[in-house]
């Protein structure tokens, strides 16, 4: 447990200190501010939670793309820096290191992202006359956004064991567009399924946010919201377990 916590703590610190984390998310936020600088209040009055979800939805279409890419080099880094051999010689298990790295780096990258969401909601809230909309953010972040981010983070860390980072960045960006933004009637896609990391099911099930996106006002039971969260977390965990098993087998074969 202490090895896991140690890995988590120092991976967290290292990721939080990276220039790229703040630069990428800062750039995306500036672009978002610029785009929304002319938008007025919504055409009709919505419940505050719904308005908050709409604002979060606008940002969550693309901020997680930068999030996924920022995590993509974390696992490969040990090899490129030459620290892998040292770490392999330590008594800490591979599992403790891998999961510590996953949670540490993911939580660290979530911090600027959460800050970006908060600033965007404050900015938009002030523009539409309700600066307190940001009070919904913690709950929305935990229920709607975080499961998708954990899912994305797991694949970003696991896939780069096999794929070079630039190629992963291209594929991931393509996947994000295809799996979250392409309407299902246009082509086969993961969009509007329980595996959509953008969080449409949890938003619809827990906040009745159904008038935009996939559901056309149709209500979604809480069980489906929970199922979507569970499926995203389990699929992410599966990717990491697969990576762990692969590395363990490779080490045994050496």
């Amino acid at each position: 447990m202490s090895a896991f916590l140690g890995a988590l703590r120092y991976e967290f610190c290292m990721q939080l200190r990276r220039r790229s984390v703040w630069v990428s998310i800062g750039f995306a936020l500036v672009l978002l501010f610029a785009l929304f600088s002319r938008s007025g209040p919504p055409e009709r009055v919505l419940p505050p939670a719904d308005t908050a979800l709409r604002l979060v939805g606008n940002a969550s279409f693309f901020l997680p793309v930068a999030f996924g890419i920022l995590l993509a080099d974390r696992w490969r880094r040990e090899r490129s820096l030459g620290t892998l051999e040292l770490l392999d010689s330590l008594p800490a298990s591979l599992g403790a290191r891998l999961w510590g790295k996953y949670f540490g780096a993911t939580i660290a990258t979530m911090i600027p992202l959460l800050l970006a969401f908060a600033l965007f909601m404050l900015y938009s809230g002030v523009r539409i006359g309700d600066a307190t909309l940001v009070r919904f953010l913690p709950l929305i972040f935990v229920v709607v956004i975080a499961p998708g981010l954990l899912f994305v983070a797991a694949f970003s860390i696991a896939c780069t064991e096999w794929l070079p980072v630039p190629l992963y960045a291209v594929l991931f960006t393509g996947y994000w567009f295809w799996g979250n933004l392409v309407p299902p009637e246009r082509m086969p896609t993961l969009n509007c399924t329980l595996l959509t990391p953008i969080g449409e099911y949890p938003a619809a099930a827990f906040f009745q946010h159904t008038d935009v996106g996939c559901f056309n006002g149709q209500s979604i039971p809480i069980a489906l919201g929970l199922a979507s969260i569970a499926l995203l977390l389990a699929t992410g965990a599966l990717a990491l377990f697969a990576l762990q098993a692969y590395i363990t087998r490779r080490a045994a074969a050496r």
Binding site: R19, S24, V65, I69, V165, T173, W176
Partner: peptide, 15 residues
């Protein structure tokens, strides 16, 4: 930081 460059390209393109 190459990752920053890739992140900016991806975010700008999706947006």
């Amino acid at each position: 930081a190459a990752t920053a460059g890739a992140g900016v390209v991806a975010a700008a393109w999706v947006l």
